[in-house]
Amino acid sequence: MIWNWEFVWAEALPPLLKVVHITVLATLYGFAIAAVLGLLLALLRRAPVRLVSWPVVGFIEYVRSTPLLIQIYIVYFGLLPALDLDPTPFFAGVLALGIHFSTYTSEVYRAGIESVPRGQWEAATALNFRLTQKMFRVILPQAIPPVIPALGNYLVAMFKETPLLAAIGVLELLLTAKNTGSYTFRYIEPFTIVGVFFLIMSIVASLGILRLEDWLKQRRPG
């Protein structure tokens, strides 16, 4: 028999259970960075000064068009050491994930901000709100809730990219599975378990996002 359950319980599964939190934490920390930095990029992109908005657009397009793996290497081997920091692979990996996906979330925020009706801006101007007040008290509270499902999709996408951290030696699920395989010479169980874990998690999360979407639609007046 190809699949060996005894091997699963004794050798393949226990080390994976010990590191599953690394994958989960990398996703959550990475997404926290992407959510905050993405909003910042979306706001800077709207800056009336081209000296600000153009480099931001350039940065977004640049990061979106180039491989995450190279960006992870740049942050880990190049950027952080150049800043005289001695990063752990986990920290560097999470930072790279966050920066990469912030360029995607910034587009989501942008769509949200642009979908707020003009009248809301005009009303805020009529009430003599300052720019920051307009943005944070009037526009963003209306712009962000409808785009939460779209942000959720990038959370799932980022989760599926966390195995790339294995490339800089973060002992997450994939690297742990590979290590188990390399000293037991059985790869099928560890890699299949990891694949199934990603599959179940992302399908459950996608279903959750769909329900959230429905809920948000019902909540909206009109």
């Binding site: 994939l174 890699f191 694949g195």
Partner: peptide
């Protein structure tokens, strides 16, 4: 193929 990670698929 969308649900399980691309790198996991390649390793598999």
């Amino acid at each position: 193929f969308r649900g399980s990670s691309a790198l996991v698929q390649l390793f598999w």
